[in-house]
Design a protein around this nucleic acid. Structure first.
Lengths: 141, 141
DNA sequence: ATATGATTTAGAATTATTCTAAATATAGAA
DNA sequence: TTCTATATTTAGAATAATTCTAAATCATAT
């Protein structure tokens, strides 16, 4: 999503395109990392002409999540990370560095996966609307 | 795991079987829920003859995780839950109630799953040592 | 009995986040 | 434009979960 799309997206979702929100969204859309609110705060503070408060970062992230432009990721205790990748996907956590990498979904397997888990646990009668896989491991060359 | 096994497990892992640790471990082993440290604190405070401090609950949970008798679960922001089920398994989160239910692994699919994700994302050359699926949805009758 | 080291404790400190109420900015009407 | 109503931002206080600290207690081996 480029800047034009961003403005359009804000408009379509009734979000006022304030410089704070735009800068935060832009920053997230241009990184492959999964930064915390604090990291985002540090990054956008340098880009904006005016000072920004941490509360605004939290407020902005909240509305951006609400309109579906970003997602929250929970892979470690007591820390929320934000992800520009709103497509259905999974995460790989490098246990040596803590780095989080997006993992593309494998659609063929997905239906099978949910089907089988439904069959395997029949007592509980789930209706599964979504699922997320966290892989743990190391990168090798 | 019963009380006898618990004492044996503590002994084998060089853990002093203090009443606090034993009561916490016993409480966890006898619940199917996934309580937080605070919930565990409330529960064991009633069972112990002496007062217990929240710090002890955290300390005990830390060593119990370390020796592998329990696991931490991260399914919601800024809250760690504890799980007696140390077998490889997954979780279903009831999005209406927040309840977390253990989901048995489906071994046949597991290897296939990891295999396929390795193949699907070849650039990154993962060595996956572990993975965890969080399912979201509702219970139906 | 006594020393040593491990464990527990209360409370302070820390970290991430949310809340509050005042100040400011924005968009639409006049 | 200017005015007005509403939304947004802000600093700092409040809260929640967790970790830290240093003293007190406990268990075990001498």
């Amino acid at each position: 999503m480029n800047n034009f799309d961003l403005n359009k997206y804000f408009f379509e979702h009734n979000l006022k395109p304030t410089p704070q929100r735009l800068t935060i969204a832009e920053y997230l859309l241009n990184t492959t990392s999964h930064p915390t609110a604090e990291e985002i705060y540090q990054a956008v503070a340098n880009k904006l002409p005016m000072p920004i408060s941490l509360a605004t970062v939290y407020n902005s992230l909240e509305v951006l999540v609400k309109v579906g432009i970003i997602k929250e990721v929970f892979t470690e205790p007591n820390k929320v990370r934000y992800d520009k990748n709103i497509t259905n996907h999974h995460h790989f956590v490098n246990t040596q560095t803590g780095e989080i990498i997006d993992v593309e979904p494998y659609e063929l397997l997905s239906e099978q996966l949910v089907e089988n888990y439904l069959l395997k646990n029949p007592k509980q009668k789930f209706k599964i609307t979504n699922y997320h896989i966290t892989f743990y491991g190391e990168l090798v060359e």
